[in-house]
Design a protein around this nucleic acid. Structure first.
Lengths: 340, 340
DNA sequence: CTTTCCCTTGCATACGAATGCAATCAGTCT
DNA sequence: AGACTGATTGCATTCGTATGCAAGGGAAAG
């Protein structure tokens, strides 16, 4: 039967104990007798008391808030990650303060500074880079940072990504085994480790098989740029017979363009392989063959890394890579002997 | 050149003024002489001082945090809304604490209680209902609530929705004008005002034109249930020649099922009209004719309503409906005289 | 030159909870 | 019974900032 603003002092008075006692009952690990606990719990329930996390944060320095920096929510991968991250953190008793980075390329320093103001216990950045200056500030303030789906060398931060080089390799091997020979690549933004790694794994593996990419274009993770890249590829004297696209989001644009503007049938006229395996990739309209980024395992690893670093700040930064399978669907011929 | 934890007291000492003076310089509306402001600003810059919002919240009772309760992020409409809401609130100096409601049907009381603990200045719920008890608590605590894309009678909360009855009407008139006669409806969840209103506007308008829905099925806003509904419709002796679907997200599933399982061509064999106009609706693979929910105007209205209620708690709750056009694309025949 | 008024400023306190310290209490061992 | 041990408890202080109050200062008005 609560009214507004019940404080620990109110509870203390009703329970006939000191404010400290109330605090100790609600502080895990503090000592309180069974009798006290009971009295306090009863009084608290009666008044509808709940500890004020802000006041708590002031004194402990721990807000139990995690800052999450995002961009680019139109790519289905991120809403999904957000959902899983948020749920997992809620389960662990943390809360999530969200910031949208204005642009995938822009710096997020302003945003992170605001996060630090709120004394967040940790920061997760999804697909965004941080300046070195800021990196140092976070370190100085003792705020652990985990980069999700983006690595960055030289910073002391942990990162969790898919095994992108390996993923690029898988895509290449698959297309080679499928007998494709004029294979183009519309790559993820070359300013991102993710884009570079996939591209490298892909190119190296083609080479190992005596092939070279027919062309490699930076798609910047954007729909319109990817579509433009397709037009460029199709204008060449030798058209590609397969395209490996740096992520699913661009792959959908590529497929739309090939079908609507060039009247091509996939996979008969041209094969497409994507990267991510977002839910949309499984929908019949696309049925996209793609390398899976195992979001749930990436989320688990992210949270585990972050929380353990919060518990024990002396832990070294980790770079975790998580392997994912190539998911065989309908946008590329399946080689002899490969099972779907 | 900051180190960790610079307080207003540090700044005060360096500037040779009192802590109060520093506070006043950073509090809009407080009085401070030009000389003081300058000294303090300089010292603050030198130390890298930034006011601690948590401490500030303790004393003012205003955290400048808005709680946002979400579900169902796989429907592209919500990530989009989230992005816009978050950006707009950031611009106004607010921050966003995110909560995922476990399920669209489940109650969100626990979640909202946690929000209240954090002394959020206001709450936005997207497509989720609240218990009456909770409603009262928010009122008692003086926390304004705006429901986004969901109305609820009897609560004292404001709500912002599309003009759903009107939207249902538009869909119906369009299909009637297009000469369709066997029109089915796969509706949004009947437990939501949004779903009910669209359905009502649709049914009433058909009736006004001497028609009745061939069938009406509750799609529950779920892909698999919508797909199942399609199978049910196609098993009837008289197959529909058009389907109005309660939102785009389900409409995509309906189209996938019609094409992949029944080999139908859209719009030649059957017409589809959706609701929302999410970005995906404009992609070539679907090219969906749909009633637009003007997200940006809905977001603007939501924020305006919420912030003005925060400024002046005596404002009455508002129920805002925002009209949106029918967007003509390629999933239904366009009637004579209608322009695309 | 005095009076009045407004603008600044510092002092002291408050917000709500956590915690070091010392005192108290119960329980155990001899 | 007395001494010793360990668990509880209350007191007082702390976190960082905002703000009521009263005092000080300067300018304008008389």
């Amino acid at each position: 039967m609560a009214d507004a603003k019940v404080t620990s002092l109110d509870v203390a008075r009703l329970a006939g104990v000191s404010q400290s006692a109330v605090s100790r009952v609600f502080t895990p690990g503090a000592s309180a007798s069974k009798a006290t606990v009971e009295k306090v719990r009863k009084a608290a329930a009666e008044l509808g008391y709940r500890p004020n996390p802000l006041a708590r944060a002031m004194i402990t320095g721990k807000s139990r808030i995690i800052g999450l920096v995002l961009t680019y929510l139109e790519n289905q991968f991120y809403p999904l990650a957000l959902e899983l991250l948020s749920n997992a953190l809620q389960d662990k008793g943390y809360h999530v303060l969200i910031f949208m980075a204005p642009d995938i390329h822009s710096d997020i320093d302003k945003v992170v500074r605001e996060l630090m103001d709120y004394q967040v216990d940790g920061i997760i950045t999804a697909s965004v880079g941080m300046s070195n200056d800021l990196t140092n500030r976070c370190a100085a303030a003792g705020i652990p940072v985990v980069m999700f789906n983006r690595g960055q060398d030289g910073t002391g931060h942990s990162s969790v990504t898919a095994a992108n080089v390996e993923g690029g390799r898988k895509a290449a091997e698959f297309l080679v085994a499928g007998g494709y020979t004029r294979i183009a690549h519309i790559a993820g933004w070359s300013g991102s480790s993710t884009g570079r790694d996939r591209r490298r794994g892909f190119a190296e593996t083609l080479e190992k098989n005596g092939l070279a990419p027919l062309a490699t274009v930076d798609g910047m993770y954007k729909r319109d740029i990817a579509a433009e890249a397709v037009r460029g590829l199709m204008a060449r004297p030798e058209r590609p017979d397969a395209i490996f696209v740096g992520n699913d989001y661009m792959a959908f644009s590529v497929m739309d363009t090939l079908r609507a503007e060039f009247g091509l049938t996939i996979p008969d006229d041209i094969a497409i392989v994507g990267y991510d395996d977002v839910p949309l990739a499984a929908w019949a309209a696309y049925d996209l063959t793609t390398v899976r980024q195992p979001v749930n395992r990436m989320v688990e690893a992210t949270i585990e890394t972050l929380l353990s670093k919060i518990d024990d700040p002396s832990r070294p930064a980790q770079k975790i890579e998580i392997d994912g399978p190539l998911v065989l669907r309908g946008t590329a011929r399946i080689p002899e002997g490969w099972t779907r």
